[in-house]
Amino acid sequence: MSTLPSAVATSTEAYLEAAGPRLAEQCTACGACFDACPMVDYIDLRKADAREVTADMRSLARGTPGGHAAVSWVGACAKSGRCRSACPEQAAGLDAMLLIRIARQHALNVTGQLPAKRDAAAFPRVKTFARLQLTDEELAKWL
């Protein structure tokens, strides 16, 4: 069981807006997170320059465009979490997984370098699955 962190912002949107530049400032672009990431092999970037890719990832986290390799990398993030412990700045409070996630969000919403994959049917689909299987009482109590 874990105690959740205290709120430091008035919404998740505000938190992420503030966290991106803050975490980017802490990042030294050493490349350790990239080297530790298992997804790098799946997108054929193992031979890329880790420092260059992480510097570009840091740019994305600040809301400025990053290079193709960095965009591909943050787009492939599957939250394996290896980056967190690999980051030499972790003890200083740098959450590399969160930084990479914010970079991905910026590539989607700010720089427009990643296409948004919208599945408008996702919620209607799970609701239909629910009605297929749940009793009226379960539907009323759980959803």
């Binding site: 069981m1 874990s2 709120a7 912002a9 919404s11 998740t12």
Partner: peptide
Amino acid sequence: CPSCHMHMSDIMAPGNPTSFDIA
């Protein structure tokens, strides 16, 4: 769900006051 759990710990709670723990 691990996505829900991580999102609560890493993003939801820092942006919203919570009065519960998570497990």
